[in-house]
Design a protein around this nucleic acid. Sequence first.
DNA 1: TGAAATTAGTTGCAAATGATACTATCTTGT
DNA 2: ACAAGATAGTATCATTTGCAACTAATTTCA
Lengths: 150, 150
Amino acid sequence: MRLRDYLPYRLSVASNKASGLIARAYQARFGLTIWEWRVIAVLGEGAPLTAQAVCEATAMDKVTVSRAIRALDARRLVKRTPRPADKRASDVTLTPEGQAIYLEIAPMALHYEAALLEGFSEEERAQLTTLLDKLEARLAGLTAAGGDAP
Amino acid sequence: MRLRDYLPYRLSVASNKASGLIARAYQARFGLTIWEWRVIAVLGEGAPLTAQAVCEATAMDKVTVSRAIRALDARRLVKRTPRPADKRASDVTLTPEGQAIYLEIAPMALHYEAALLEGFSEEERAQLTTLLDKLEARLAGLTAAGGDAP
DNA sequence: TGAAATTAGTTGCAAATGATACTATCTTGT
DNA sequence: ACAAGATAGTATCATTTGCAACTAATTTCA
């Protein structure tokens, strides 16, 4: 077997390079970690989300989400509104400052994505989407089956 | 922008799930980290490599490589032979025990890869390879350009 | 030649990370 | 109603990670 042809390895290298590239930009321009950015990205769609909902939307661990939200709250980029119906949870939304950052950072993110895909034909982009869909579906199946649940 | 459609995010999620799945298996069956496994994988091809060469072959940081090799050395899975020509470097090779683990673990790795790609047609596999090649090429270009070198 | 710069590899330290346990609240079943 | 269990989110602690500094050996080039 050749490591350089091994799919999980290739995914890992590609993902780390892409994330690293973009994370450096977020860090340099806004002082945001990649997780803080992810939280902002999902909140940028407008709807208030609980931390739990953020977990699901970002594929992040609940501890990571908790810390990201706390950091964003400390910088007044998000606001937490305790739910009357369930006092354990809070609705999280972007503050106007958070919105402003979102509106600045989202185009930058899309620009990076466009740079990554420069030179890809429309057909290739569609293929990539389809293949990632299939891969995700397989992974969902495998992780569900393989987990040593109690 | 929608995070769930954002390419770097999708790569990250897919990569983490795939790596996590496989890493758990290596850990459970052989007590190897994913980095130790990567070192074994490249040494399994037969040629002795210096730590530096391992870095290049595995896309790992030199600190990570150093630690992985030390751990493998402590378990007698690799042997370090100081080079006469350059006393800073050592040639690293698998010991017979390391070879044995390689021969056991490599088929397992390929089995996982096959499981990931189950349901992919030959054409789709070829597409995936081609797209990853292109993506890697783009990333190599972007990271080379973007680095804020001194 | 030999001083300055480079490279191989390791180590130290601080920050990031993740599993586990914990508090507070809510839901369920009797 | 209320005990037993589930859930939201946080805190704690040990491990992992990664940068930067370090040692030792090698190369460069004036």
